[in-house]
Each structure stands twice: as structure tokens, then as C-alpha cells.
Amino acid sequence: MRSVRNGVCAVAAGLATGLCASALSLCFAGTAHADVVASWQSIPAPPPPALKPVTVTDPAHTALLLLDFDTNTCNEKERPNCVASLPHVAELLHEARDANLMTIYSLTSTGTLAAVPPVIAAKGDETVVQSGVDKFFNTNLEAALKARGIQTVIVTGTVAHGAVLYTASAAALRGFKVVVPVDGMSSKEPFGELSAAWIMANAPAGVSKNITLTRSGMIQFPH
């Protein structure tokens, strides 16, 4: 009698295992056939993030960063949006110099200071760093900022989803207040600008709480 009972239990267990395996295979089969990339096509673009006015109340502890502007890429053929951003960056640079802000240039790994567009050319006494997308990585940028007691950085540059996004985020994670004028950053594709702005505005609090998105004309300097 016991052997019969054991046999029945074994059959039941086998059926249960088979049913579970079948259910799992169906689940995984459905997952395998789902195309996550295709699903992106139905996602509506988010609304542009809110832009806020900014007043530079402490110019002695504020710096303007100009990231990776280079005539080899910042031209009408390669990156027309970068060319369109130059008047806004030039006006910020003029205002920053008048207010005696610290001004910092960054170069790409193969860039040169001589290739910076003439309208925003360096004077020669600025801090210059050279790195990949994160300008804090393997450079003296953080040390240079702290040596001047900088607490707020205004970040401009190209590309938006590269140097601007990663350097602004790195600054925010280090406790700096970060101001990003969206008309002073550019990408080859407009989506790069929108996505970078969206990420900076919606990143976890360690980043987004320290970043303010604005326009160049919404930044007020002391006179």
C-alpha cells in the first residue's frame, strides 16, 4: 500500500513540475518575443524641463566653464547647433569677465586651445583642462575650483549629452551648485540636447537638486 501511495505522490510531483516548467517556458517565450526597442517608438517625448532665472550674487565664488568648443566640430557642417549657441556663450563670457568670474576651458583628448572659436577665444590666463566627457576625471579641475573657493559653476559646451551632461553631473555630485543655460549647450542632433536636459532635471536627487536649467538671457550678473 505504501509503495502505491509513494508512486502516486511521485506522479503528482512530476505533473506539478511539468506544469511549472511549461508556465515558465511560456513566460520566457513571451519575454523573448517582446521587442523593447520597438516599444520605444510609442513613447511620447517628455515636455521640456522648466527653466528658472538665475542671479549671480557671489561672482568671486562662481566660475564659467566652456567645454570642448572646437572649430573642427563646432561648424555649420558638423554641428550647426553649436555654431548657433556661440553668440549666447560669447555674451555669457563677456558678462563673466566683466564680473571677474573664474573662467575655465576644457579640450577634448585631441583638441587644442587654438581651435576654440574666435568669438569665445581664451585670453591665455584661464585654467585649461583636457579629458574625456567628465572633465573632473584625471584633471586638476576640482583642485582649481576649490583653490578659488568656487561654489557655483555655469556650464556651457558641446556635446550636451557628453561633456555638458557628465561634467555638470560630476560637479553636482561633488557639492557644487550647477547652472546650465540650455542655449549654451549643443549636440549634433537636437534629441541629444533634450535628453541631456531631461536627465539633469530628473536625475536622482544627488544630481538634480544641485542643477538649475536656465537660458543665457535669464542669468543676471552684478554690474
Results as ranks from 00 to 15, higher is better:
2 R>S: 14
3 S>F: 13
4 V>L: 13
5 R>G: 08
5 R>Q: 12
6 N>A: 14
7 G>D: 11
8 V>C: 13
12 A>Y: 10
13 A>H: 07
13 A>Y: 08
13 A>S: 14
15 L>S: 09
16 A>S: 11
17 T>E: 09
19 L>T: 10
22 S>W: 14
26 L>K: 12
32 A>D: 12
33 H>Y: 13
34 A>G: 11
34 A>H: 14
38 A>V: 10
41 Q>E: 13
45 A>R: 12
51 L>G: 01
51 L>K: 07
52 K>L: 15
53 P>E: 09
53 P>Y: 05
54 V>G: 02
54 V>I: 13
55 T>Q: 15
59 P>T: 10
59 P>E: 06
59 P>L: 07
59 P>I: 09
60 A>M: 12
61 H>N: 14
61 H>P: 08
62 T>H: 05
64 L>E: 01
64 L>C: 06
65 L>F: 08
69 F>Y: 14
71 T>R: 07
71 T>H: 06
72 N>E: 15
73 T>K: 02
75 N>A: 06
76 E>W: 14
76 E>G: 08
76 E>C: 10
78 E>P: 04
79 R>I: 00
81 N>S: 13
82 C>L: 02
83 V>C: 01
83 V>S: 01
85 S>M: 10
86 L>E: 00
87 P>W: 05
88 H>T: 06
88 H>L: 06
89 V>K: 00
90 A>Y: 04
93 L>M: 13
94 H>I: 10
99 A>G: 07
99 A>M: 11
106 S>H: 02
107 L>Y: 04
108 T>R: 07
109 S>T: 12
111 G>H: 04
113 L>R: 04
115 A>Q: 10
118 P>R: 15
123 K>D: 07
127 T>H: 05
130 Q>G: 04
132 G>N: 07
133 V>L: 13
133 V>Y: 13
136 F>L: 11
137 F>Q: 10
139 T>E: 02
140 N>R: 10
141 L>M: 05
141 L>K: 02
145 L>K: 01
146 K>E: 12
151 Q>D: 09
152 T>Y: 04
155 V>H: 03
156 T>E: 05
156 T>W: 05
157 G>F: 02
157 G>P: 00
158 T>A: 07
158 T>C: 09
167 T>G: 07
167 T>D: 04
168 A>L: 05
171 A>N: 02
174 R>G: 05
176 F>R: 00
179 V>L: 06
181 P>C: 07
183 D>S: 04
189 E>L: 12
189 E>Y: 14
190 P>D: 09
190 P>G: 09
190 P>Q: 10
190 P>F: 10
190 P>E: 09
193 E>K: 09
193 E>Y: 05
198 W>K: 07
199 I>T: 12
200 M>H: 04
203 A>T: 03
203 A>E: 08
204 P>V: 07
204 P>I: 06
206 G>Y: 06
206 G>I: 03
208 S>P: 03
208 S>N: 12
212 T>Q: 05
212 T>M: 06
213 L>R: 02
213 L>Y: 02
214 T>S: 10
215 R>V: 05
217 G>H: 11
220 Q>G: 11
222 P>F: 06
